[in-house]
Structures are given as structure tokens and as C-alpha cells.
Design a binder for these strands. Structure first.
Lengths: 235, 235
DNA sequence: ACAAACACGTGATCC
DNA sequence: TGGATCACGTGTTTG
């Protein structure tokens, strides 16, 4: 319960857990602990190659703890804060999920077999969100995808809110999905809304706030790249 | 790739992974490593209280590695053998499983609704799935609804895009819906997304661009009005 | 006082 | 030749 305060400092999240009890330790660090820093490097270069490993190892530990904490975050019923317990709970949870998933999937299979209905998806898509005729899938004039708005806003510590609107033509949605899939980001929530002439895409991404501008540029260039190939056909 | 041979020895399973490269270490163990066992216990009792911690720590490490390896065993698609990578893959896999399970469960729900025939469901719903709780903003602390972001952007001639995020508590969604209903705007498309700690609301409104600022203020004041009544309970 | 849990620095190992 | 990863022993803190 008291071993992750350095995560609290160094990491990003997890602001709960009060009291930073352990002694200092951070980017700074006195790094000649008290008075004895002992053996290696008898004189001359005190911290060249020998102490390069120290910071490396420190980072490794830090990252590992961050990951471990992230693991703990996705497991709902945690009992103890032990490192070992965290992993154990994660294992149990995974097995539980697998079991449950298998059960529900077989259940679906059975229900499908029992129902000769099986129309499945005869209709490609109902226009949904009723009214407003002017069916959502129409060409409009623009040659291909055209970006109308793009915002990448940091939400809290390590979450980015991507919000883009673009013109909508046939196949735009799939292209957009493929585009974001290709980035393989850690998407928390995605949301696509189609309306007569435009397409709105909102998604929460787990990423460091530092990546904000990079991500925005990445999206812009990718969409721009979607425009130039003059092969329009490809649903 | 070479750090879990001791698990291989000590643990139970996973006989694959050849070569036990690292130096010895096991139940036996020379436990005065090479020639120097150094400092503690200047004389008399060489291993009483001081070196009791050593074996304890050794067991802790062993157990932690066993658990970590067991975790790796239940995750299907592992890439690297890194400790950190193992945890990362486990996290991704858990999220993937959660998503999949939610999908299939809603699918079952839909099928059941369409078919009043099928009785035969012994259990109404297993618990789990939802509630990742934990982070995505601390949430928690805020007393009621808290507005995190609000944008009112004109889209074209007479369309306004309202985009707001707020903290999510019990009853937040209904309140928000009632709020927007009370405005009786011409809503073209509305979209609400709930994620663990926050609530995202996106809607297209048919209104003149002149009303932009007025609408924004209207929303802000309405939400602010929702905050002050100190009656927190309200499903 | 005692045991459990952790972070640290260090040497070894592979790529 | 370094960079990355690991296990180890040790000191410290908490219950």
C-alpha cells in the first residue's frame, strides 16, 4: 500500500494514495545515498559508464511498476495491493472473462441455430436516427474526404480527446476506421456519427499529453494521404 | 528470454524454453555466493537474523516470477518475454476480452428481445464486466456534475456543434438529457458516450450561428444550476 | 521485536 | 561495444 508513491510522483496518474512515505527518490535524487557511495570508480570519472546503468535500471523499475499499476487498473475486483496479489487477481480475472465469453458465445450459437429467421443483415444499414430524410449516404460534391475540423485536446493527465469532422462520401467511414486502426492507439472509446453531409468522429485515446501535436499531425497527414490517390472506387 | 529459467526449475509447468543459462540458484543454492559473503554478523552467529531476510526476499521474488509467468500463460498472443511486455500484453488482452464480452452480451440481449420464444435462461446476468472503476480522472471527489469541457462550434450556415464533457455520477445522464430537452432545440443528432469516470455528449443542433454564444452560456448556467442543489442522491 | 513488502545499487548476461 | 534485462543482497519502512 505504500510502495507506489514513486509511481505517483514519476508516473502520470493515480493521484489517490496519500502520504509519500519512503525517502526521496525521483528524477533528481541525491544519488550518493547518504555518505557512502562506496567502491566503484576509485577516482577520476565518478559517474560515466558505471552509473549509467543505475539510471537505466531505475527507469526499468519505474516502467515496470507503471505497467503493473495499469494492470491493476483494468481488473475490477482487487483485494490487496501486493505486487503478487495484483498479478494473481489479474490471472483470475482473465480466466473468469475467458470462461464467461466462451459461455455467451456458445449461447449465441445455440440461439442462432434455434431461430430459422437468420435474416442476419439483409439491409446494409437502416438510415437510423430517423427523420431528416436526405439519406445520409449521398455523394456531395467534394472529390474525396475533406477535413472540416480537427481538435486534439488533452483531457487530464494521459488522455487525449480527438474530435474530427469531415465530409462524407461512400466508403468514408471504413476508410476512417482503417485509418485509426492503423495507428493502433489505445482507444478507450470511439464514436462515429453520420449526418446528411458530414461525418463526426470522436474518440478518447490513452496517450501521453506530449503526443498531442504529433498525433494531430499524424491524423492530418494520413487524411491528406487519403485524398490524393485518384482511385475513388473502393467501397 | 533468459530470466525465467529459475521459474522453470522452481515452478511447475512450462518445460519449454531451453537452456538454463543463468548461474545456479534454487532451493539449494550456495548462498555464500562466491567467496565474499561480506559484512553483516561480524562473528559468532553468521546467519541468524540478518540472513533470514535473504531467503525471505528470495522467496518473494520467486513467487512473483511464478505469478508473472502464470499470467503470461493465460494470455494467448504474447510478443516478447519481457516482464514489462508480459504485463502490457496482459492489459491489452484483458481490455480486448472485456470489449468482446460486452459485445456478445448485448448481442444476446438483442436476440432475446426479438424472440419472445426462448425462455430457458437460468441466470439473468452474470455480474462482472462493467465497472472497471479506477481512474480515468479521479472523478470521485467532485460533489455533483462538473463541467470539464464545453465547445459550441458553428458548422456551416445554421448548424451548431455542441460538444461537452463532464464528470459522470449516478443520474448524470438523465439530468443531462432533461436539460437539453428543456431547451427544446432542433436536435439533428445526439450522441452520448459514457466511460468509466466521464461523460461525453455530442450533438448537432439546427440553429442560427448567431445563437452560438447564447447557447453556450445557457448550457453553462444550466449545468451550474445543477450543481448547487446539495441533494446528491438521485438515481 | 518480527515478518512482510518494497526500492535501490550492483554484477552478470545476452544481443 | 554498449543497451537492455535480470537476479541478487541490502537497507528501510510498515503493521
Amino acid at each position: 500500500m505504500l510502495w507506489m508513491e514513486n509511481i505517483e510522483n514519476v508516473g502520470d496518474e493515480c493521484r489517490n494514495y496519500l502520504h509519500t512515505p519512503y525517502l526521496l527518490e525521483n528524477q533528481e535524487y541525491s544519488w550518493t545515498i547518504d555518505g557512502y557511495y562506496d567502491s566503484s570508480s576509485p577516482d577520476g570519472a565518478p559517474s560515466s559508464a558505471a552509473s549509467k546503468n543505475i539510471v537505466s535500471e531505475r527507469n526499468r523499475r519505474k516502467q515496470l511498476n507503471q505497467r503493473l499499476f495499469a494492470l491493476r487498473a483494468v481488473v475490477p475486483n482487487i483485494t490487496k495491493m501486493d505486487k503478487a496479489s495484483i498479478i494473481k487477481d489479474a490471472i483470475d480475472y482473465i480466466q473468469q472473462l475467458q470462461e464467461e465469453l466462451a459461455k455467451t458465445q456458445t449461447e449465441i450459437m445455440e440461439m442462432e441455430c434455434n431461430n430459422p429467421v437468420t435474416e442476419e443483415q439483409p439491409r446494409p444499414l437502416p438510415q437510423l436516427l430517423g427523420s431528416h430524410n436526405t439519406n445520409v449516404f449521398n455523394s456531395a460534391s467534394s472529390p474525396n474526404i475533406q477535413l472540416l475540423q480537427l481538435n486534439v485536446t488533452p483531457m487530464g493527465d494521459n488522455i487525449l480527446l480527438v474530435n474530427l469532422t469531415c465530409t462524407k462520401r461512400a466508403g468514408t467511414i471504413v476508410k476512417l476506421c482503417q485509418l485509426f486502426e492503423s495507428f493502433n492507439l489505445k482507444i478507450i472509446t470511439a464514436n462515429i456519427t453520420a449526418l446528411p453531409g458530414a461525418l463526426l468522429n470522436t474518440l478518447f485515446i490513452e496517450a501521453d499529453v506530449k503526443e498531442k501535436d504529433g498525433l494531430k499531425m499524424q491524423i492530418e497527414t494520413a487524411i491528406a494521404a487519403l485524398m490524393d490517390p485518384p482511385s475513388p472506387m473502393m467501397t
